[in-house]
C-alpha cells in the first residue's frame, strides 16, 4: 500500500508542479476544469507521453504551461490550426486543444468551424467565462446580452454565439456543454470526448469573478456557481440549436451530439499516400471517398433531435 503524503496531490504526475503557483485568480473556474480533464485522462488511461496539449492566448490559454506533457502555447486564435497541423503530421498522438471562448470563437472562429467540418481527430475544451479575463474583462462573442464589460459599459447590445450549436452544425462528432459546477458529469463527458475518434468539443461554462462576475452582480465566485445551479437544465440529446444562453433564463447542459464514429480527416489524408489508393482509377478513388464520407444526413438528424441517438436521453 502506498502512502500519500499530505503535500502531494493525486494529479501531481500530470502537472508541472515546479511552475506553481499558477496565474489564475482566487475563485477562478479554470483549475476545476483542468482537474476534471486530467482525471478524465487518467481514467481512460491516456498515455501522457503520447498526449499533446495546445493552447491559444488568454487565461485558459495558460493551461498548456502547467500540464506535464508536451504542450504548446501558441498565438491568439491559432491553437486549432497548430493542432490540426501537428495531428496530421503525427496521427498517433492524442491532441487536445484547451483554450477560452474568445480565443476559440472570436479571433479563432474560422479555424474551429473548419476543424469541425473536416472532422479532425482532436479534442477541444472551450472554457466559456463570458469575457476576456486576461486583458481585464472586455466584451466577448459569448458575453450575454446586457452583460457589463469594460468595453460594453452600458450593457452588451450584441447577441452571443451558441457555441455548442455552432460547432454541432459545423460537423463535430461529439458536442457537450457543462459548467464548472457539474464536475462529475463534466469528467465523464471529457472521458467520452477523449475516447471519441473525430472532432470532439466540450464547452464548459465557468466563473470569472475578477473580470466578469464583479461587474454583473456575481462578485463572489460562488454567486456564478449558484447561478449555474439555478438555471442549468441537464438534458441530453436535445437540438443544440436550442442551446442558447440568455441572462436569467434556463439554459441547457448535456451531451448534444454523440455521432457514430466515421473516418477522420487524418485517416483520409494518410489514405491518399498509400500506393493502393494512388495507383487505381479515379472512379475507384471516388468510390473510396464516398464510402468513407461523413454521413451529414445522420448528423443532421441527431442535431435536430430526430436521430436514433435521441432515444438515449
Amino acid at each position: 500500500m502506498s502512502i500519500i503524503k499530505a503535500e502531494t496531490h493525486p494529479l501531481d504526475d500530470y502537472l508541472r508542479t515546479e511552475r506553481l503557483p499558477h496565474v489564475w485568480c482566487p475563485g477562478c473556474g479554470i483549475g476545476t476544469v483542468l482537474g476534471a480533464y486530467l482525471r478524465a485522462m487518467k481514467n481512460v488511461g491516456l498515455d501522457s507521453e503520447k498526449s499533446i496539449m495546445v493552447s491559444g492566448i488568454g487565461c485558459t490559454g495558460r493551461t498548456a504551461g502547467y500540464v506535464r506533457m508536451d504542450s504548446f502555447h501558441t498565438t491568439h486564435g491559432r491553437a486549432i490550426p497548430f493542432a490540426v497541423g501537428l495531428k496530421a503530421a503525427r496521427p498517433e498522438l492524442n491532441v487536445t486543444v484547451f483554450s477560452g471562448d474568445g480565443d476559440l470563437f472570436a479571433i479563432g472562429g474560422n479555424h474551429i468551424i473548419h476543424a469541425a467540418r473536416r472532422n479532425a481527430n482532436i479534442t477541444v475544451i472551450a472554457i466559456n467565462n463570458f469575457t476576456y479575463g486576461m486583458t481585464g474583462g472586455q466584451l466577448a462573442p459569448t458575453t450575454p446580452e446586457t452583460g457589463i464589460t469594460t468595453t460594453s459599459p452600458y450593457g452588451n447590445v450584441e447577441s452571443p454565439f451558441n457555441l455548442a450549436g455552432l460547432i454541432a452544425v459545423a460537423g463535430a462528432s461529439y458536442v457537450a456543454r457543462w459548467t464548472s459546477l457539474h464536475v462529475r458529469r463534466l469528467e465523464k463527458s471529457l472521458e467520452k470526448a477523449l475516447k471519441k475518434r473525430g472532432f470532439s468539443f466540450v464547452e464548459v461554462l465557468s466563473q470569472c469573478p475578477t473580470a466578469y462576475g464583479r461587474r454583473n452582480g456575481m462578485r463572489d465566485p460562488v454567486d456564478t456557481l449558484k447561478y449555474f445551479q439555478k438555471y442549468a437544465v441537464v438534458k441530453n440529446h436535445v437540438n443544440p440549436l436550442e442551446g442558447v444562453i440568455e441572462p436569467n433564463k434556463p439554459f441547457i447542459l448535456g451531451e448534444f451530439v454523440d455521432a457514430p464514429e466515421e473516418a477522420t480527416f487524418e485517416d483520409k489524408l494518410w489514405e491518399l499516400t498509400k500506393s493502393e489508393f494512388l495507383h487505381t482509377s479515379q472512379a475507384e478513388r471516388s468510390e473510396w471517398i464516398i464510402e468513407h464520407r461523413r454521413h451529414l444526413e445522420i448528423l443532421s438528424r441527431i442535431i435536430s433531435g430526430r436521430g436514433e441517438d435521441n432515444e438515449q436521453s
Binding site: V54, F82, K87
Partner: peptide
C-alpha cells in the same frame, strides 16, 4: 506530396496555414 508519403492540407486562410506548418514542424516534418 501523396506520391512521396507527404501530407497536403489546403487551410481556411494564411493565418491557419502558418500555424499548421509550425505544428507539423514540431511533429518532425
Amino acid at each position: 506530396l501523396p506520391e512521396v508519403g507527404g501530407i497536403f492540407i489546403q487551410m481556411e486562410d494564411e493565418l491557419g496555414s502558418m500555424a499548421a506548418l509550425l505544428g507539423a514542424s514540431w511533429g518532425g516534418k
